[in-house]
Design a protein around this nucleic acid. Structure first.
Length: 103
DNA sequence: ACCATGACTCCAT
DNA sequence: CATGGAGCCATGG
């Protein structure tokens, strides 16, 4: 499994998200090259657990909502992790205006 | 090579 | 606000 390009970029992008901030799938997708990658990004995070290496909890959808299918304990766990980093989560939503990773 | 699937996003109704 | 359709891309069978 040496998918050394796309996935690697995605992982890097996700890992590059600073603590206390979040990024959307589309953001990561565009960051890695294409908006269409949004699905690949989601698949990558879902398939490749790489727990401890990839802070998937910092990745939310375009609406700032936590992943509905978060594979590491559910959105509740994701929310807990985000709050632990200083990100306010309200009803499963984060304030993108405040926490979205800006360039 | 084709078809089906998916942690997505946007737009229209 | 909910639902549906279309667009985008990679992966696996």
């Amino acid at each position: 499994m040496e998918s050394k390009n796309l996935y690697d970029k995605i992982y890097k992008a996700v890992m590059s998200i600073p603590s206390g901030q979040v990024a959307t799938y589309g953001q990561i997708a565009v960051m890695t090259g294409n908006r269409g990658y949004a699905r690949v990004v989601g698949n990558a995070l879902h398939k490749n657990p790489a727990p401890g290496i990839i802070p998937c909890h910092r990745v939310v959808n375009a609406k700032g909502r936590l992943a509905p299918h978060f594979a590491f304990g559910g959105a509740g766990e994701q929310q807990r992790l985000l709050e632990a980093e200083g990100v306010e989560v309200l009803n499963g939503f984060v304030d993108l205006e405040k926490y979205q990773m800006r360039n």
